[in-house]
């Protein structure tokens, strides 16, 4: 037996020992696994099943195969919901990312009362979405709302906010920006705290301007953290439901009906759970595809 095989046999034995050693910990995971199968895995499998039926809540059900999916791809209302979701998500990703980056750079500097300012800044993230959405609803009131009063003070024309189809989605994005920019800030701030200081000293000696230091040192070193924040923000923006539902319920008309709202209405307002399940599956595939794409981006960022 050659040395190499001996080594590999020994290695394999060691690996096996490690596996056996590790296997003893399986029982720690069993209770959680049962719960996860019950409340996460089972729903997915059951959703696939339900999506093959014309299934009315509290009514009859009929096997229809892929008919729900076929209907979905020709449903103009769903098509619009997808477009609105893309519009909403892109705004609700780009704006918090830019603002969050700016905020993280600001909070990374030392200044008086920084702790207090940071605490106030992250409060929106933890506030109950429904409670906050109610206050925004009152602030958006076209005649009596405080926001229109503020606009007028700054010499700007009052807006109809969520009461007009033209402004409803940007207005809802405003709430989302208010709510979730703090998380982006925290994720990037964590990255800033971990940056080494040597490159900055070297750049200073070489006479680099602050902008150059930011552009050629901070940004590249920060890129992995920015990508993680981007992934989390994109997923959360796609998931947005509470504030949209509370503030507009998809209105006026269907002007703010995103995929989530469409899905909710199909299932629990029209009791069309078979069709809604098909929506869930399509939405799931979209989210997973996007997540895979973003993870792939992260791998590339990590390598360069």
């Amino acid at each position: 037996m050659s040395q190499a095989t001996a080594a590999s046999v020994a290695g394999r034995a060691a690996a096996k020992r490690r596996r056996n050693y590790a296997r003893r910990y399986v029982w720690f995971v069993v209770p959680a696994a049962v719960v996860i199968i019950a409340v996460i895995l089972f729903p997915w499998i059951f959703t696939i099943y339900v999506s093959a039926f014309d299934w009315r809540l509290g009514g009859e059900r009929r096997w229809v195969g892929f008919a729900n999916y076929e209907q979905l791809f020709t449903d103009a209302r769903f098509g619009w919901a997808v477009l609105r979701t893309i519009f909403y998500t892109s705004l609700a990703v780009v704006l918090p990312m830019l603002l969050g980056l700016a905020a993280a750079l600001s909070f990374n500097r030392k200044f008086p009362l920084r702790g207090l300012a940071r605490t106030i800044f992250i409060l929106p993230m933890m506030a109950t979405p429904v409670a906050v959405a109610l206050v925004w609803t009152m602030m958006f009131h076209p005649q009596l709302g405080v926001l229109n009063w503020l606009l007028v003070q700054f010499g700007l024309p009052p807006s109809l906010w969520v009461y007009s189809a033209d402004t409803v989605i940007p207005t809802l994005v405003l709430v989302e920006v208010w709510h979730w920019t703090p998380l982006v800030m925290l994720l990037i701030l964590g990255g800033l705290a971990s940056l080494p200081i040597d490159p900055y000293e070297a750049a200073k000696i070489d006479g680099a301007s602050p902008w150059q230091a930011f552009r050629y040192i901070t940004l590249p070193l920060l890129a992995p953290f920015i990508v993680v924040a981007l992934i989390i923000r994109t997923i959360d923006a796609l998931k947005a439901f509470d504030t949209i539902y509370v503030i507009t319920q998809g209105g006026p008309g269907q002007a703010s009906e995103t995929i989530n709202i469409f899905l909710y209405l199909q299932a629990f307002a029209f009791y069309n759970v078979g069709y809604a399940s098909a929506v869930v599956m399509v939405f799931f595939i979209l989210i997973m595809a996007l997540a895979a794409l973003l993870l792939w981006t992260r791998e590339r960022v990590r390598m360069t």
């Binding site: 729903p43 998931k239 809604a276 939405f283």
Partner: peptide
Amino acid sequence: ITPGLSYLIP
């Protein structure tokens, strides 16, 4: 990463 809403039907 999936919306809570998607668990509700089943």
